[in-house]
């Protein structure tokens, strides 16, 4: 992941094939590999839970300094257990990889996509307002729905997921745990409202638009003075 440019090593005694130098080099490589492994989920290549906690803390601190909200998207694959039961665990793993690669390729470089555990994922969107995060979630939902995953036997399965989104304003002074809880509740809402949807503050299961609904318009016009 973060491979530094190899520094020119030299042996203080000037031995051309210094064995200690070789050992140091091996150790350094192992160290880099391990620190990469420590923060990566082996199956999907996304960041793991451990890195997520660290990154969320960092980003919320950045939020406080910049005065801009941090957004969080939590995702749960719909009926993942059924995929496992029907197609086997190998297919289940393929689904997780497929989904993970969509999260990675359809978010910005600064976004931090992590595997939260099992079939749950979480994406941190640094210094991002809610409506942008909701747009991102909508885009991810649509992409996943449209991209079928081809299986080895020639068939393909279509996967959907449920999304919970929220933004944490630095003024709210909320902790990382509270924030994750809040987003998780929107994810629960998306699940209970029938899956394959994005839920967020004020969404009530509807898509985010600044346009007014017909009911709202009618109510506004009905309230014209002289009524």
């Amino acid at each position: 992941m973060k491979e530094k440019k190899a520094k020119k090593d030299f042996c203080p005694h000037g031995f051309p094939d210094c064995p200690i130098l070789g050992e140091i080099r091996d150790l350094r490589d192992a160290c880099a590999r391990l620190s990469h492994q420590v923060e990566t989920d082996g199956l999907t290549g996304l960041y793991n839970y451990r890195h997520f906690l660290k990154a969320l803390e960092t980003e919320m601190e950045r939020s406080r300094r910049l005065g801009l909200p941090t957004s969080l998207i939590m995702i749960d694959i719909d009926h993942f257990k059924a995929v496992n039961d029907t197609y086997g665990h190998e297919a289940g793993n393929r689904v997780l990889q497929h989904v993970g690669s969509i999260w990675r390729t359809h978010t910005r470089k600064i976004d931090i996509a992590c595997r939260y555990g099992g079939e749950e994922f979480v994406i941190i969107l640094p210094t991002t307002r809610l409506y942008r995060a909701v747009n991102t979630a909508q885009r991810l939902r649509k992409t996943l729905e449209e991209k079928e995953l081809p299986l080895a036997d020639g068939t393909s399965i279509s996967i959907t997921a449920s999304f919970g989104v929220d933004a944490c304003d630095p003024k709210e002074n909320c902790t990382e745990e509270e924030f994750v809880d809040r987003v998780d509740r929107f994810l629960m809402q998306a699940k209970s409202e029938g899956r394959n949807r994005v839920c967020h503050r004020g969404s009530h299961g509807k898509t985010l638009t600044t346009e007014l609904s017909r009911e709202e318009r009618e109510a506004l016009f009905a309230s014209k003075p002289g009524d």
Binding site: R201, T210, L212
Partner: peptide, 22 residues
């Protein structure tokens, strides 16, 4: 103002501020 477009726009503004900015 009593103008319906003003009322609609004010409503939209309040909606965005409330929903996206708490």
């Amino acid at each position: 103002t009593p103008d319906p477009t003003s009322i609609t726009d004010a409503y939209a503004l309040i909606k965005v501020l409330m929903r996206d900015h708490n």
